[in-house]
């Protein structure tokens, strides 16, 4: 079973102080910690579990600068076999659909039974690249997958719906699935593991290698454009309780008592 996993390198922003860059169309990532997009990490683990059960080969693909080799090597250390980095200044400014076009151009020539992506990326939160990619490759797909069972050439998957409801759907391979967090428990990657794959070659593909024209990618090939970033209005916000820890706890207990928080 040949599996391709698309992965993205993203800044960790959940607890970081965010500063906009000078053009206010991006954020200043100086000093930020980057890692594999959380959803993609679950997708890599899902691919490895399928490979362990079925045999086959896993290729990880990531678009971006040389730093993206970190996440590709991390995936290799987890158990992927090959890594490809798609890199070209002409890719800059691509929206999610244009990015799907770039991925499609790279993937169409690699044998695949199954393509996995994360449901969404932690940075732009778009949640559509995988499904657009499936359309471009002419593959059946399912988004928001929380369980995968394989039966011959058919995948029986669970899709996460709202309110705890799940949908059971059958998808015939070759197919694409977008993977939701919590589907598995991604394995730990040791520094030793990463060292072992440090010398493994990572193939590079440019726009020219993929026969992509400038009209299809980058700002020109994108039908949506970020005009500017700004910080969302905060609203009234919480009344912040100050003081020593003892005073804070004292105040909180008072609030809890008033508001029916102590049974």
């Amino acid at each position: 079973m040949d599996i391709i996993v698309c992965i993205k390198r993203v800044p960790e922003t959940a607890e970081a102080d965010i500063v906009l860059d000078a053009g206010k169309k991006g954020i200043d990532t100086d000093g930020m910690v980057f890692s594999i997009n959380e959803w993609d990490n679950y997708a890599v683990e899902a691919a490895i579990q399928l490979k362990e059960a079925q045999g086959g080969k896993i290729t990880v693909v990531s678009a971006g600068p040389e730093e993206n080799n970190e996440v590709l090597r991390r995936a290799l250390a987890m158990g992927a076999d090959d890594a490809i980095r798609l890199t070209d200044p002409a890719f800059e400014g691509s929206d999610a659909i244009a990015m799907a076009r770039i991925l499609a151009a790279a993937i169409k020539d690699i044998p695949h039974d199954l393509i996995l992506t994360g449901v969404q990326a932690d940075d732009d939160g778009f949640g559509g690249t995988g499904v657009a990619l499936a359309e471009m490759l002419g593959l059946p797909y399912a988004a928001l997958v929380t369980d995968i069972q394989l039966d011959g050439d058919t995948l029986t998957v669970h899709r996460e719906l709202e309110g705890g409801l799940e949908e059971v759907t059958a998808v015939k391979m070759p197919a694409l699935l977008t993977i939701q967090t919590g589907i598995n428990e991604p394995r730990y990657v040791s520094i030793m593991g990463i060292r072992k794959v440090a010398k493994k070659e990572i193939a590079e593909k440019s726009a020219g290698d993929l026969s992509l024209s400038g009209d299809d990618i980058g700002v020109k090939g994108s039908l949506s454009q970020i005009e500017g970033l700004f910080f969302p209005p905060v609203g009234e916000g919480a009344e912040i309780i100050e003081g020593t820890m003892d005073e804070k706890a004292e105040t909180l207990v008072k609030i809890l008592k008033e508001r029916g928080g102590i049974a």
């Binding site: 659909i97 799907a100 559509g128 499904v131 657009a132 499936a134 471009m136 928001l144 899709r159």
Partner: peptide, 9 residues
């Protein structure tokens, strides 16, 4: 999310 990106493409 299971339909719109494919339709857009």
């Amino acid at each position: 999310m299971d339909l719109a990106p494919a339709l857009a493409a």
